[in-house]
Design a protein around this nucleic acid. Structure first.
Lengths: 106, 106
DNA sequence: AATCTATTTTGAAAAATTTTTAAATAGGTT
DNA sequence: AACCTATTTAAAAATTTTTCAAAATAGATT
């Protein structure tokens, strides 16, 4: 748990696919594995990463395990990202292009 | 470039530190490496990952290379995350707790 | 109880990422 | 031009992550 786990979880393609699959419905581990054509063991590993990141919750019905999104975590994620968004932009409208003299863009 | 690259870039602790350092000022590669106590070569690798993800831009002054945030990409990122946020929640106020019967939370 | 189904765990193997070392670039200074 | 400084690149080594195969759990069904 923590932001490191969250981004690590999101960095994998298979795991992002799982999240997309669960956007509108809860699914069992078996169904997810089947749809992604990966082994149950491999899927279980990815689910554990997503659970560790708090991006999923699970519940049992009979001997099936259903997974669903924990959408509350995405709110926290947005908060973290917003710290890097543009805050105040200095007004440079009446100014010569100083950057062009100072910087040689690569 | 692409969301996969973005999350992969953000999944690493060193790279998130770099972004945090660049939040308020542009810094040279050398200064960043020094502050993080990693070798210039290792830093260069991480910078390349962040550039690949479009999270940074660079410019040269003399033989220094300055790096700064490309904050526009964070907007796109937020858009992606918002797809997983809670949309409409069905109204279950007049309903018995069916979930308690159906689900055994783990 | 024995068996079957769904899933997880474990330990080893495979694959991908990161670091290191050394050499290469690029540009500034003497 | 020769040299110095900052940074990047390349190849090998180290580390981490992911997959696989097999065994272990957990619960349902017969």
């Amino acid at each position: 748990m923590g932001l490191a786990d969250t981004f690590t979880a999101l960095s994998d393609h298979v795991r992002r696919s799982i999240l997309t699959m669960l956007k509108n419905e809860a699914l069992t581990a078996g169904v997810i594995a089947c749809r992604l054509s990966i082994s149950p063991a491999a899927l279980s590993y990815h689910l554990s990463q997503l659970k560790k990141a708090d991006l999923l919750t699970e519940y049992k019905v009979k001997n099936y395990v259903y997974y669903e999104l924990n959408s509350t975590l995405f709110d926290e994620l947005i908060l973290w990202i917003k710290q890097f968004e543009n805050k105040e932009r200095p007004d440079v409208s009446g100014q010569q292009n100083v950057a062009a003299h100072m910087k040689e863009w690569v």
